[in-house]
């Protein structure tokens, strides 16, 4: 009973914060709501006894990714008026289409299949059961091939990011002190021999 109450509490929080991410006018608020929705998700995962995933979500996404995200949002200084321009104008169409789609999907699929009954909750796991261990076993044995491909995808992402952002043109004007010390007179100064020129008036 308590578990259900907790579940519905966090599920409602998740839905609310996720929709606020889309609706909120201020990008910083949107990012903060995203953090809240991550927290709610990790709570739901805890109810499902997937404690490793829950902790990872908080540590990695809330701790690292979202902080970076907030930095970017604050640094970019996005003009809110321009971003939200035409929002009110497009709301009726957007909402209309969304409602139509929900109705259409509901007609096709019916509500029978969205209920939780077919998915019986797992009984309480053994206290020694380690979520991290099971996950590790699955990733490194059963899904080894897919895991390796995921690694290669990350490698490609790095290559792509570097290719697209690195430019060979040097931007800052820092000087290599090593080169500076060893500079000789000949490197900087060029003495040119030339015939003396007469002044125009004398010509």
């Amino acid at each position: 009973m308590i578990e259900q109450i907790v579940f519905y509490l966090f599920a409602a929080m998740l839905i609310f914060s996720a929709s606020m991410v889309v609706v909120s006018r201020n990008p910083v608020h949107a990012a903060l709501f995203l953090i809240l929705s991550f927290f709610a998700t990790s709570a739901v995962w805890l109810i499902l006894q997937a404690e490793f995933l829950a902790i990872t979500l908080v540590l990695v996404y809330v701790g690292a990714v979202m902080v970076l995200f907030l930095f970017v949002v604050m640094m970019l200084d996005i003009n809110q008026v321009v971003v939200k321009e035409g929002f009110a104008r497009h709301v009726p169409i957007g909402v209309g289409i969304a409602i139509l789609m929900v109705i259409a999907m509901g007609l096709v699929v019916g509500s029978d299949y969205f209920l939780a009954e077919p998915y019986i909750a797992k009984e309480q796991l053994d206290p020694n059961y380690s979520n991290a261990r099971e996950l590790g076993l699955a990733i490194y044995s059963k899904y080894l091939f897919q895991f390796e491909i995921a690694g290669i995808i990350l490698l490609v992402a790095i290559i792509a990011a570097i290719t697209l952002s690195m430019s060979k043109v040097k931007i800052n004007k820092s000087i290599n002190p090593d080169k500076q010390v060893f500079v000789k007179k000949q490197d900087r100064l060029r003495v040119i021999k030339m015939a003396a020129e007469k002044k125009d008036s004398e010509a």
């Binding site: 491909i149 995808i153 290559i159 792509a160 290719t163 697209l164």
Partner: peptide, 18 residues
């Protein structure tokens, strides 16, 4: 498997975007 289809597709697409 569905997972391999998806990962292969992402590897291909990501390279193409870049």
């Amino acid at each position: 498997s569905l997972l391999s289809v998806y990962l292969g597709l992402e590897l291909l697409s990501l390279s193409l975007y870049a």
